[in-house]
């Protein structure tokens, strides 16, 4: 089973006196996993540890059963698109991707085929023979992505892969990530663009000051925090005041407040399932017309706010 997982076992990394990450225990399954946290929280450190670019001060890491200290085996399975915005001097986009496939040990023909396939996937065919130095930031991001996927890895580690991309390219890239995840890859993505992370991730790992604060599906993580931060639900309906009074009597509702236009009620609850059952009952029994029911804070943004910003993190 370990050869399908990425495992961090009690991993710490210190840069001299400075903490990178501390006592990380994490198991990453296939699909898209997003690392979320403010600048300096330890996301890139985790990614660099996974790829052997840095070594742990303590603990053990295994990527599909391979140690990151064994690059010859590791990078047959892993592709890394880091944040380093620098390239070997004088290379075109095509040469950049192809030369590193050749270093992997591929034959010339195979390297050429895979290079074109990767460049096509990131939609850079027309610019392939231009010098990387003349690329825009978004194009440089895409050619790095091409280099990371070119050897068809099983694990892709992507540090802020949406940075510098325009909205169209961003949507395309997310679509590519989903496609890769469906093909059975592990995708580990770090990003600041929370609503996009929210849309594409199967699970998130929230990290701050080098510590893992929470991990799992966004909703699972949100539910873990119900005691501290009751879930907020907005209900638009007629007879809002009556509705508020009716539901506030229930144990499942912590707070009920009328919207300014008196056509809606904000509910805070620690037990969303119980509240939704109550809502059904009230609607039927009291014949209240409900226009909409929308959870206000069950997304990654809210989770991020509760877990990180409210603890003094800054993004």
């Amino acid at each position: 089973m370990n050869d399908q997982l990425i495992i961090f076992k009690d991993v710490s990394k210190f840069y001299g006196e400075i903490l990178g990450v501390n006592r990380v225990n994490l198991t990453i399954t296939p699909g898209i996993t997003s690392l979320v946290g403010p600048n300096g929280s330890g996301k890139t450190t985790l990614m660099n540890l996974m790829t052997g670019l840095i070594q742990p001060t303590r603990g053990h890491i295994s990527v599909l059963g391979i140690s990151p200290s064994n690059p010859q085996e590791l990078f047959r399975k892993v592709g890394y698109c880091g944040q380093f915005d620098s390239f070997p001097r004088g290379m075109t986009g095509y040469e950049f991707v192809k030369s590193f496939l050749s270093v992997h040990g591929l034959s010339r023909k195979e390297a050429e085929e895979k290079t074109w396939r990767a460049i096509e996937r990131v939609d850079l065919i027309e610019a392939a023979h231009r010098k990387v130095g003349a690329y825009s930031k978004g194009m440089r991001q895409r050619i790095r992505l091409a280099q990371a996927i070119a050897h068809e890895p099983s694990v892709m580690i992507l540090d802020e892969p949406l940075n510098g991309l325009d909205p169209m390219a961003r949507a395309e890239t997310i679509r590519l990530f989903r496609q890769l995840a469906q093909e059975g890859l592990h995708l580990i993505v770090s990003s600041h663009i929370l609503h996009e992370v929210d849309k594409m991730s199967d699970r998130v790992v929230l990290i701050n000051n080098g510590y893992i604060l929470a991990e799992g599906g966004v909703l699972d993580v949100r539910e873990e925090k119900l005691e501290e931060h009751p879930m907020q639900i907005m209900i638009r309906c007629d007879r809002a005041q009556e509705f508020a009074a009716r539901v506030f009597a229930s144990d499942s509702v912590v707070e009920a407040s009328l919207h300014q236009d008196r056509q809606g009620v904000f509910i805070k609850t620690r037990n969303a399932d119980a509240f939704y059952q109550l809502l059904n009952r009230v609607v039927v029994e009291d014949r209240i017309n409900v226009e909409s029911v929308s959870p206000v804070d069950d997304d990654l943004n809210a989770v991020y706010h509760y877990l990180i910003e409210s603890n003094g993190g800054s993004s």
Binding site: T51, P71, Y80, G82, S86, F100, H104, H151
Partner: peptide
């Protein structure tokens, strides 16, 4: 030049 990592990210013994 900050480009050494490209070699380190290849399936290549150091």
């Amino acid at each position: 030049d900050k480009s050494l990592h490209y070699y380190f990210l290849c399936a290549l013994r150091r």
